[in-house]
Amino acid sequence: MYCNQRPEKPGVKKGMLEKINNMARANSLWVTAYGTGCGAIELRPLGTSRFDMERFGIAMRPTPRQADVLIISGYLATKTLKRVIRVYEQIQDPKYIIALGSCTINGGMYFDSYNTLNVLDKYLPVDVYVMGCMPRPEAVIDGFSLLMQKIKDGRAQGWKHYKENLDYYRENQKKIITDWDLPDYNW
């Protein structure tokens, strides 16, 4: 069952309590295990003792319902975009997106392919981009620490942005997903 209502406009929260909340959020980032592109292979060494992402409180979760972060690990084919939107909207607020690789930034080496998106920014609100093709595990950790910093400062507001500009994003998404059969609001 879906909630078939437009999302409410999230209010702006400020003050001490929000700061403490943000601190807590930043230190336990749980990641949806969804490898959408080649970058996924460098996420697995991150879990081993060598790079050890759990020391930052980052853990992989099997389902989007338990996670806060969605990693777009590379190019997105139009067929995947549909699933990614679904996964993203199922994550509970607050949620963040990290995009890996030059493919998400400007299309990378597939800029002229008929089946991969070029600029991910038009379809989903990305908080942190990590450049490289493919980014090394250290770079991914760097991206995570940037995200943490942004959350602590209260700047990682991509999810609010998505709700406020839902029409803009939907219009772009529907333009390339020709057989749109998702419910319009599936939170």
Binding site: Y75, A77, M109, S113, Y114, N115
Partner: peptide, 25 residues
């Protein structure tokens, strides 16, 4: 098909040597 990047189409557009970065992916 979730990872379809149209390699074979792109390779037809690139020089022979330019395809090496594509094929390894």
């Amino acid at each position: 098909g979730y990872l379809h990047r149209a390699f074979e189409k792109l390779m037809e557009k690139r020089l022979w040597i330019q395809n090496f970065p594509l094929v390894c992916r």
